[in-house]
């Protein structure tokens, strides 16, 4: 018996948003009488934290703390249209819509504050803590609380804004395939180390070092959640997952979490995540969509590491112990080989 170690690398990119565009999202923002802000959307939070991120984006844009923003989403009676949460589009598309709506609302807010302070709105700024002041003269200020009260009960202004974000649809050229699939791309590179049992074909993923470039980490802890969870799913795809283990046979498909295989808490690789930020020109505060891309590079990195360890190429997913063992028994000739000609 021998446990043989190997290391592999893979690098990928990933488009943000629906392929070829044409996927709009809208947002509405308004203030309450006491200067809290409501974001109305129909975007869906799948667990990635859409509600929290939209609150932070709105707060940043208006100039208030995040806990003064409420996100009301995914009720078609109250939220304007969103194409949906898929294709790494949520943060990018809805975030841009929220920025547009929040900017418009901020402008009204500053105009009301300007009337109260008897200055030009263009001379005003927010301190991020709930106040509006004259730029360069912080003592000349009014709270957003008072500004909202004034807007509602004195000046008859609606502190509100509408936001819409749409990347126009691109139509591929039938002959050449010329098209604009996406406006920005996230990037990743993963180095994986594995240990392969050459008598059973079992693989332990020892370490994965993931480098992700995601435009901007809008909330680093939430980015970390996505990336760590995605890295686990990548490993899972590489070695475990399929609904039909003997595809194209339809027999023996998993019906439960015992039969549908995914790494358990005792199978975790030592995982490192490093994030780079190259802001996207059209991203909300530069953000791109990291949610899908983060689960991709581990798969080929592990496949390459297995080759490095035991010299067999498994070119069919998932890379099960059986596929490795069959290849080992065939002296590494299964699937393999560099067919140079």
């Amino acid at each position: 018996m021998a446990m043989r170690q190997g290391r592999g690398v893979a690098a990928v990119n990933y488009p943000t948003g629906m392929n070829l565009g044409g996927d709009p999202t809208q947002a509405l923002v308004h203030s309450t009488p006491t200067g809290n802000f409501m974001v109305s959307l129909s975007s869906v939070d799948l667990g990635q934290g859409m509600k929290q991120i939209m609150a932070q984006i709105c707060a940043e844009t208006i100039g208030v703390p995040t806990d003064r923003v409420i996100v009301d989403t995914a009720d078609t009676d109250t939220g304007p249209h969103c194409m949906g949460t898929f294709a790494s589009r949520g943060t990018h598309r809805a975030g841009n819509a929220v920025i547009a709506a929040a900017r418009e609302a901020r402008q009204v807010m500053l105009e009301v504050a300007a009337e109260e302070l008897e200055v030009n709105a263009s001379d005003l700024d927010t301190d991020g803590a709930g106040n509006i002041h004259v730029r360069g003269a912080p003592q000349r200020s009014i709270s957003i609380f008072d500004t909202a009260l004034s807007a509602h009960f004195k000046r008859g202004r609606s502190i509100s804004g509408r936001g819409m974000f749409l990347i126009p649809r691109s139509y591929p050229d039938a002959e050449t395939g010329a098209m604009k699939p996406s406006t920005c791309y996230a990037h990743a590179c993963t180095v994986a180390e594995v240990e392969v049992d050459d008598e059973t074909g079992e693989v332990n993923v020892l370490t994965v070092k993931n480098i992700f470039e995601i435009g901007r980490a809008l909330n680093p802890k939430m980015v970390e959640q996505q990336l760590v969870g995605g890295s686990w799913m990548g490993i899972s795809h590489a070695l475990y997952e399929t609904t039909e283990p003997y595809y194209p046979s339809r027999e023996h498909g998993g019906r439960d979490f015992n039969e549908y295989l995914m790494p358990g808490p005792g199978d975790l690789a030592q995982t490192e995540v490093i994030v780079l930020e190259r802001p996207a020109a059209d991203g909300p505060y530069g953000a791109k969509g990291p949610g899908e891309m983060c689960a991709n590079p581990q798969i080929p990195a592990i496949a390459n590491a297995i080759f490095d360890a035991v010299g067999v190429r498994i070119d069919t997913l998932p890379i099960t112990p059986e596929r490795i063992l069959r290849a080992l028994k065939a002296n590494g000739t299964e699937n393999a080989g560099l067919v140079a000609h």
Partner: peptide, 13 residues
């Protein structure tokens, strides 16, 4: 043969 392993694999290991 089931979702976990094939008869072949079980016999081999």
């Amino acid at each position: 043969t089931d979702a976990i392993a094939s008869a072949w694999y079980r016999s081999e290991v």
